[in-house]
Structure formats: C-alpha cells, structure tokens
Design a protein around this nucleic acid. Sequence first.
DNA 1: GCCCAGGCGTCCC
DNA 2: GGGACGCATGGG
Length: 264
Amino acid sequence: MVRIDKSSFNIEHIANSGQCFRWQRITQNKYAFVANGQYTEIMTDKNDILLSCSPSYFEGFLKDYFDLSTDYFSIKSNADKEDAYLQNAIQNFGDITILHQNLWEVIVSFIISQRKSIPAIQSCIEKICEKFGKEIAALSFEGKNITAHDFPTAEALYDAPIMEIQECGVGYRDKYIKAAAEWYLSTPKEMITKESVKEIFGVGNKVASCIGLFGLHDLSCCPIDVWMQRIIDIRYDGNMPDWMNSKYAGIYQQYVFMYERSFH
DNA sequence: GCCCAGGCGTCCC
DNA sequence: GGGACGCATGGG
C-alpha cells in the first residue's frame, strides 16, 4: 500500500473528467482502474490518498501516470486573471491532472467516444476489454481476489473479427477501430504525432486533439468538441478566448469542460 | 418513444 | 474552404 498527499489532485474529478474511461467507482470514496496491465484501487483517507500497490510500482509507473511532476500550481497561477469564467473553472475543477495514459488505448477510446455519451463510452470500452483484453489478477485493499481485463493490444484488435468488435456496441466505428489497429501496427512509434493520427480513417480534428493531449501529453492541444463550441458561443460571445491557444490550453480545457458540464 | 451524445466521412457548392 | 446530411447505439 502507498499513501500520498491528497492536495495534488481529486480522484473523483479525474474519474469523471472524460479523459479516462476505465476508472470505476467501487464505494463512496474508492475507485479502481486498470492501467499498465495492472488493476489498482485508489481511495481517499482523511487528507491522503491510498493506493493498493507496492511502493516500487508507484515509483516505477503511477507517479508518472498521475503526472505528479508537472507544476500545475504555476500553470493555474498563470491563467488569465481577467478571465472570470476560466478562473471559476479553475476554482471548481483545478484539482484535475492530465494522466499519462497508454497511447494505443487513448487512440481507440477516443475513436469510440465520437457521438457517444461518457457513460456509453465507458460501458462500450469495458465490453471490448472483457472480450479481447488479457485477464489480469489482483488483490483489493481488503485482500480479496479481483479479476479484471487489460485493454486489448493492437494485435488483438487487428486479429479480431469485425463482427465481434461490433458486438461491443461500437456501432459504425467498428471499421475505424480496425483501421486504427492496422495503422498503429504499421507506423513507427516516433512517427506518431497529433497530426499523423489523422491518417487513421475515422480520426478527425477533435479526436486527434484528444490523442495529442491524453495520449501524447501535448498540453497545448485543446480539443474543440460540442462543449467547447457551446462555451465559445455562450460564455465568450462567439469569440475564441486566448487561453484556447496557449501553451497549456489542454489543461484549461479540461477544467472548463468539467465546469460547464456541472451546470447541466 | 424521444433526444442527444467529448464527430466524422461524404457530397456538394 | 465551408455547410448539409447520414450514421449505429445506448443512456437519460
């Protein structure tokens, strides 16, 4: 078990942020997620956060996954003080970090995300993992045996019959997923950029921007989805605010995304 | 049943 | 370059 300082981030906000789809609530203050081929439980305990893993796993993977080395405090302090809407978003959701997720998982997840609600995306991805992902075993905080499924590899989805992918509720995106697997397996890793992912059939500007932000950790990426468009139209009177073109646009976008959704 | 969801490809101008 | 349209499916 690992105990860390809570002040850096809010697990409930991260779980509901729409950047990751495999964080599931177990109880009031406890979540579980699968990342890096491992099942981990995470919970709040007074002023700390507890993790159901070894210290070496935390140092070797989770510390980076949670993006604990980025200085979010200064990024938030540098946000435009004149922009009341952005400041309110930071006040309410500024405890979200941008996770370092697996690139392949992000590509597939955001291909699926198009024209789907977040709960629908989550259940869809869970079905894909159960069907094509390797089974993994782990222990809960209480020492109970847990079985979960890793996110499927590109090879697994490349080999999967398209009908079986379709059975996971992906709808017309089945062919996009196949195309992504083929592209990913045939493209050298160092050639993958927020621009080059648009070569994938089914990946446009918005999904590419999400891949850049969540999969490549390019914090300047600012995905313009229906919510951002609504915010530009309603909160900024049709004019794109400066922060959307700033170095840390992706982080501010995340806070604003959550803030605006909290009103609906 | 109805509406909409962290869009995209295609067609047309 | 931009606007209209169809798209599979599931949650609320």
